[in-house]
């Protein structure tokens, strides 16, 4: 998977719109800006698609990876997708995780303030969420 991908995620209350340009994007920033809400929307859409009430517009599948012990298996079964990982996932700072995602063809959006030592991400791909009323970018 290469190139730029625009992602638009929305429900009846909030809308997110952003562009991913590399395979690993880290989202940090203040509390209360909507990071977990974005993950929850992608998570609901992953499970129930259009029946979730969430809309996602993107040229690639967007999926949520949960903070559970089965993450390696599910990551192994995910291809050519945009994978969202919330900060509750303790494994994201592990070398196992870094090693695993290097061998996949997906893009990753990781909500995390910790340094992810084993991952090759650029400081230019560390984003914060900016809010304009109910639109988050």
């Amino acid at each position: 998977m290469k190139g730029k991908h625009t992602v638009k995620v929305s429900d009846k209350r909030v809308r997110y719109s952003f562009e991913l340009v590399r395979n690993i994007t880290v989202v940090q920033g203040n509390s209360g800006t909507g990071k977990t809400k974005l993950f929850d929307l992608v998570s609901a859409y992953s499970r129930m698609k259009d029946r979730s009430g969430v809309q996602i517009v993107c040229d690639k599948p967007c999926v949520a990876l949960y903070a559970d012990s089965d993450w390696q298996t599910r990551l192994g079964n995910t291809h050519d997708s945009i994978v969202f990982i919330d900060e509750d996932a303790e494994y994201i700072s592990s070398h196992t995780f870094a090693s695993t995602i290097r061998h996949t063809d997906s893009y990753y959006v990781i909500f995390c303030r910790e340094s992810l030592h084993g991952l090759p991400y650029s400081v230019e791909e560390i984003y914060e969420i900016k809010t304009s009323k109910r639109l988050h970018t």
Partner: peptide, 26 residues
């Protein structure tokens, strides 16, 4: 938000140590 929930836990639960990296600079 995860940050506020962590702050409330830190203020109310005295026999546990919490990961304050759930909290933003605010």
């Amino acid at each position: 938000s995860g940050g506020v929930k962590t702050l409330i836990l830190i203020s109310k639960v005295r026999d546990q140590v919490f990961n304050a990296s759930k909290c933003g600079d605010n």
